[in-house]
């Protein structure tokens, strides 16, 4: 049976497949950005961490033969870029948004610079869980092929929610994000907390990159990211700084991204680029609908984007 014989049923099925495949990078970057922003800093440069993670993961998987080593290495690359970002934003008069733009250029450039030799070779890929094997339809089988990273991401989302709600460290992070002066008065180091959050956040973006190069689409090239890292900030606003809602947001965006290819598979081709731009348009519409010029967004850390109190 070919996918064509499914007729219009192919569309929801392809969207489901796109959702399960495409949402993982969104999930990781949005959870990373969520953690970063909870501590009161914005990282606009996750795209750079994601790209560097993608190439590091691919290269390490190629050399070591184990894709999981690649995933770890990608996380490490993200941590490294995050450390630079964190150090820079702790300096006086340095604005985190500008650093984010710079990190985006630097990380992307470094990824392409180091990744040149890895465009040709083929690295071992991450395994998949075949949840669709009960069906005879290849379309169903391919739609229900799930990466273990999706499960790990969901686990991280749940535990991050618990971390913020119920742990001492989560409370410290939230305190630093809400009122750095108060946190400082209580004896917590604002700089150290923010540095840890920024680094872990960027590390998760690195893992998102490894997912791209080691699972789907599963190769390294210069256009591997379709802007997942750029959308992280917007996703977190959409998710109201709540890890569980980050999960729903990521699924929604993964589904939107699956829409273009899904329609193409049933022969609607003319608006390929328009459909590909849907996540961006959706984000913009959501931001217009939910932002307000007069009040803070619900759930936003109070000190987010404010200059350092002692600067």
């Amino acid at each position: 049976m070919t996918p064509d014989s499914l007729g219009w049923w192919g569309i929801p099925l392809a969207i489901l497949g796109g959702l399960l495949r495409g949402s993982v990078p969104f999930l990781f970057v949005s959870l990373g950005e969520c953690l970063t922003e909870k501590s009161g800093k914005i990282n606009l440069g996750l795209e750079g961490s994601l790209l560097l993670g993608a190439v590091t993961g691919y290269a390490l998987s190629f050399h070591s033969g184990s894709p999981w080593v690649g995933v770890l290495g990608a996380g490490g690359a993200g941590l490294g870029l995050g450390a630079i970002h964190a150090w820079l934003v702790q300096q006086r008069r340095v604005n985190d948004i500008s650093v984010g733009i710079a990190m985006m250029i630097f990380g992307g450039g470094l990824a392409n610079y180091l990744g040149k030799p890895y465009i040709q070779p083929i690295a071992p890929q991450l395994p998949a869980l075949h949840w669709g094997d009960w069906s005879d339809l290849p379309a169903v089988q391919s739609a229900l092929r799930v990466s273990p990273l999706l499960l790990i991401g969901i686990a991280i989302a749940v535990s991050l929610q618990w971390f913020f709600k119920a742990t001492r460290w989560g409370l410290i992070v939230r305190a630093v994000g809400e009122s750095p002066t108060a946190a400082k008065a209580m004896g917590f180091s604002v700089a150290r907390t923010q540095t840890a959050c920024i680094m872990v956040g960027a590390g998760m973006a690195g893992i998102a990159g490894a997912y791209l190069s080691l699972y789907f689409p599963g190769s390294w090239n210069e256009n591997i990211s379709s802007g997942q890292g750029l959308l992280a900030v917007a996703l977190v606003i959409f998710a109201r700084w709540n890890p569980i809602q980050c999960l729903w947001a990521a699924l929604l965006f993964g589904g939107t991204q699956g829409l273009g290819p899904a329609l193409q598979s049933v022969g609607i081709e003319g608006y390929y680029y328009v459909f590909n731009a849907m996540p961006y348009l959706l984000t913009l519409v959501i931001m217009v609908a939910t932002c307000s010029p007069v009040r803070s967004s619900v759930g936003a850390p109070a000190s987010l984007g404010q200059p350092r109190p002692d600067a």
Partner: peptide
Amino acid sequence: ATVMVLQGLIFL
């Protein structure tokens, strides 16, 4: 991408 790396470094 060499040129992009240089640009990123200058920016940082």
